[in-house]
């Protein structure tokens, strides 16, 4: 019964003849404004619009796939999708496992954010960060107590309910949250981490990396990337 059912699925899946030009774009879908799932259940945000434009320029058909942040690199390596476009900072550590295209988002500060009026020691307090991020790595290196969470939202919740003294995350993720917290959350520190954000691809996928690099370059040259950056992150964002 089991094998019969599976044989059925196997044949059903084989009906579509493969075209090499379909690229599956892996993203987290929980990191606004970089990427998030909107109320229509579509992947939305800066990286959605950037990714679609890059695919158009590289003449690729792109499909969006949502994957948990924690397993986003292993599932790229296993071939479940072909790129990671999920606000992933380019770091040497990750570069050993996967390859990055050139950055499409310039290096930007990370913010420490805490409850208004709280007295936080960033070197010895309890700091929340999303698991497997450069921010988590940084907190661990500062000697503060690191508490890790699977999603970015949980790190904010931890600060709001007092489980952590502060959260460390990308400034562009935190700024809308600070703004809408009605004065409850404030920025208490700043640190520069990473070499900007790039698209992750498998090391064996040099051809795709080249195509995407070319598309990113062309978007940098004609100013369309800057327009997108300003649209999603505000006029203060660093541009190319």
């Amino acid at each position: 019964m089991k094998s019969l059912l599976f044989a059925g699925v196997l044949t059903a899946l084989s009906i579509n003849i493969a075209s090499a030009d379909t690229i599956r774009m892996g993203t987290e879908g929980a990191y606004p404004p970089y990427n998030f799932i909107n109320d229509k259940k579509e992947v939305d945000g800066f990286e959605r619009h950037l990714g679609d434009e890059l695919c158009k320029r590289a003449n690729l058909t792109c499909v969006w796939v949502v994957n948990e942040w924690d397993s986003i690199i292993p599932n790229l390596l296993a071939g479940n999708y072909d790129t990671i476009i999920a606000g992933m900072s380019i770091t040497d550590e990750r570069d050993k496992v996967i390859d990055f295209t050139e950055a499409y988002y310039p290096p930007a500060p990370s913010f420490y954010v805490a409850l208004n009026g709280s007295n936080v020691n960033l070197k010895s307090g309890v700091i929340a960060a999303q698991t497997s991020t450069i921010q988590a790595g940084h907190v661990a290196a500062t000697g503060a107590t690191l508490v890790e969470f699977a999603t970015p939202d949980e790190t904010i919740a931890a600060v709001r309910n007092g489980e952590a003294d502060a959260v460390l995350a990308d400034s562009d993720y935190l700024m809308p949250i600070i703004k809408e917290s009605a004065g409850k959350l404030v920025q208490v520190g700043e640190v520069y981490l990473g070499d900007g954000i790039g698209m992750g691809v498998r090391e064996s996928d040099g051809a795709l990396k080249e195509k995407m690099n070319k598309a990113i370059k062309s978007m940098k040259q004609d100013g369309s990337l800057n327009k997108l950056l300003v649209k999603w992150f505000g006029a203060d964002v660093k541009t190319y």
Partner: peptide
């Protein structure tokens, strides 16, 4: 190949071109 598990695009399961529903069915299976 190094860290990567790679099969040619025609051998992928489900194929990259397959509708999202087949990817879900496959995962569910």
């Amino acid at each position: 190949q190094g860290n990567d598990f790679i099969v040619c695009s025609a051998a992928k399961l489900p194929l990259s071109t397959a509708a999202p529903i087949w990817h879900s069915v496959y995962g569910f299976g």
